[in-house]
Nucleic acid binder design. Structure first.
Lengths: 219, 219
DNA sequence: TCTTTAATTTAAGCAAACTTAAACTATTAG
DNA sequence: CTAATAGTTTAAGTTTGCTTAAATTAAAGA
């Protein structure tokens, strides 16, 4: 098991790499709220340890080893999230930050035991996929942002953006949950907000909020 | 919330202070497996922060603030232990080490929620008392080491020493649990080992093991 | 009381992970 | 194709918590 700092770098790289698997050092500094110089230092070190590929002034990407370590971290994080949500009953918007801390210090044995208690789940409370012990990642359903749903359509929530607690608390307050069905009644063309019905209540949701809710056609 | 290192020092001081509330720097170094010089450094720092009382070459003791912080740490630790044991089902001998890591990174909200799930327990899986939110520590029953039990007596296990996993695995294997009743059949004067009956099985337990099991007269 | 020994502190130094400021590359706009 | 700018790296320095070795203090026995 690596130290917290190393794990943070690997997580950030994994989560923010582009389609080609690359990431700017800039972005790492940004996400971790540290200086670029610090990133350069660390990136050299991680490269020496064989966790990332790095050529100065060129790109940064995970090696095979770095990638599977990062996947294991994501696995830990998401199992913690689901455990805290489902077993402990922590609210939606709190599980991410709590899991962020816990993921660095639970043994594999504990993680596996929790996974078993949760009956080998495929998705975390925000709808993100949980890699299994071998790094296999469940295929996600085809989903699109709620903003793209047609007026008159009924869609079901598949995933929500987990990076903003205020957003989560907000939609939770509106009664929107994972698997909730949403009926799109109207789109206000002026600002892109939508009038929707969900769990028997009708309300307006802003474009900003809707763009962070991912849905598929209900069927 | 303080950093892990500070928390470790406070825990060790709290757990190893004598009746007068004092501890030798020596012992801290020993328990944390670090040098005496490192302890001196840190002790100065903690003193500056108002967590301990310290005069060079004289004793080290917790201030009021340090003491209540340490109690809160013990509380976290023991709630984690019981949670892992009772809810998650981790074996006796594994909960201590796991809790050691987790206690540093759970929010108070999570700790309180777990306490609630456990129905405000008074003792951890080893029989050690759990301080409540206000730092109140449940009174422990009058107990004594099994080695002091008379031949012919029936005693019940109240507490076991939690600092040695091998010991815990061993007695767990013998079928000894918290609240188990033990009937003392014979004491072998040669080596102090005891022939006992517990949960329908008769076996011999060494003096070493028996001295780490604390019991009271069954009634 | 003096001396020996054990415990503790000081001194000097190290590694990790950060900082700011200056120097360098790469890219892109004219 | 060059110059400006955005991104990245180097250099020098900081903090935290540790190390070993040397110096100091306290305690205990002669």
């Amino acid at each position: 098991m690596k130290n917290v700092s190393t794990e943070d770098y690997l997580s950030v790289i994994y989560k923010n790499q582009n389609e080609a698997g690359e990431i700017k050092s800039n972005l790492i500094a940004d996400k971790l709220s540290i200086s670029n110089a610090a990133v350069t230092d660390m990136v050299k070190k991680l490269s020496k340890e064989g966790l990332i590929n790095y050529t100065p002034y060129k790109g940064i990407s995970l090696t095979q080893e770095g990638d599977s370590y990062a996947k294991a971290l994501v696995r830990r994080h998401r199992i913690w999230e689901l455990f805290l949500f489902q077993i402990v009953g922590l609210p939606w918007e709190k599980v991410h930050d709590e899991a962020e801390k816990l993921e660095h210090c639970a043994s594999d044995e504990l993680i596996n035991r929790m996974e078993e208690m949760l009956n080998f789940p495929e998705f975390d409370p925000h709808g993100d996929p949980i890699p299994d012990k071998n790094g296999r990642i469940p295929k996600r359903p085809n989903h699109f942002p709620l903003t793209k749903a047609d007026v008159g359509a009924i869609v079901s929530v598949q995933r929500v953006n987990d990076s903003d607690n205020q957003f989560l608390a907000h939609i939770s307050n509106l009664g929107i949950d994972l698997r909730s069905e949403i009926f799109v009644k109207e789109v206000i063309s002026y600002d892109g907000s939508m009038v929707v019905e969900c769990n028997g209540r009708t309300f307006t949701i802003s474009q900003k909020a809707a763009s962070n809710i991912f849905v598929e056609k209900a069927g």
